[in-house]
Amino acid sequence: MRKKSRYIPYLLMMPTLALLCWLLIYPVGNVFFTSFRQEMLNRPKQNAFIGMDNYIRIFSDPVFWEALWNSFRWVVSEVLLQMVFGLGLALILKERFRGCGIFRAILFLPWALSGVLVSLLWAMMYYENVGVLNDLLQKLGIISKAVAWTGNKNTAFWSLVIAELWRGIPFFSIMLLASLQTVPEELYEACRADGGGALARLRYVSFPYIKETLVLTTLLRTIWEFNSVDLILNLTGGGPVHKTTTLAVYLANTARRDGNFGYGSALAVISFMILLVLAASYLKLSGFGKEDSL
C-alpha cells in the first residue's frame, strides 16, 4: 500500500505536466527561437535565420518607441487609478450597512465582463452620433459640439483609459475587500480608543494587513494591463495614427493583421523581458514574501 501510493501524485499530475510542456513551456522557447528568424505567414518560402536583424529593426522602428511610451502611460494610469478607486470602494464596502450586498453585487459586476463586451458598452457611450455621452455633456453644458471620442487624436487614449477603468476597479475592490476582512475588529477598536482617526486606522491597522495583497494585486494588474488588448483593438484598433497602440496591441496587429511572425516574436521577447525586469524589481523593492508568504 505504501509503495503503491508513492506514484499516485505523479500519476495525478502527469496530464497537467504534459499539457503545460506542450502548450506553455515549449511555445515560450519557440518564441525566442522564432525571434531570430524571418517568418511570414503568407510567404513561407522566404523563411530563414537572420540573426539579430529583427531586434536591430525594432530599435529603429518609430512605432515601437511610440508603443513603448503608450504602454507605459497606459499601465501607470490604469494601475494607479484602479488601485485608488478600488481601495476607496473596498473601505466603504467593508462596513456592514443596509443594502451592502446589493451594492457589492452591482459594483463588482464589470469584473465578470469580457473586454469585447466592455468595448461595446462603451462604444455605445462614445459614438459621435448614436453615443449618449455627447448628448449628456451637451445637456450639462460641458461641451458645445459633439466629439468623436475614440477617433480624435487628443481624446482617444483617455477615452480608452476610462472604459478600462470601469472594468478594472472591481478587481481591486474584490481583492482588497477580501484582505481587509482579515483585519481583526479589535485592532480598530484599540486604535480608536487610543484616539486614532480614520487615516491613522488605515495607515497603522489596515495597511500592514493588506500590504501583501496590495503588492500582489498591483503586480498582477500591471502584467495584465500591459498585455490587455481586447478593449483597445475593439474601440480604436490602435489608432488614430498609433496614438493608442501599446506594445501588446502592436504585437497582436503584427501577428494577426500582417502575419509577420518573426518580427512579432522579437516584439514578444522584448515585452517579456520588460515585464520580467519590472516584476523582479518591483517585488524586490516592496520586500514581498520576506515572511515566507508564498
Binding site: 502548450l23 515549449y26 511555445p27 519557440n30 522564432t34 501588446a248 504585437l251 516574436s265 514578444a268 517579456f272
Partner: peptide, 26 residues
C-alpha cells in the same frame, strides 16, 4: 512538489499575447 508549485506560479506571469504566434504554429 515545490518545483511543481513554482512552475504553476511562473505560468501566471507569461504574457498571453506573447504566445499567440507559437501556439498558432503548433
Amino acid at each position: 512538489k515545490t518545483f511543481f508549485l513554482l512552475l504553476l506560479l511562473c505560468t501566471q506571469f507569461f504574457p498571453t499575447a506573447m504566445l499567440i504566434i507559437p501556439l498558432f504554429k503548433i
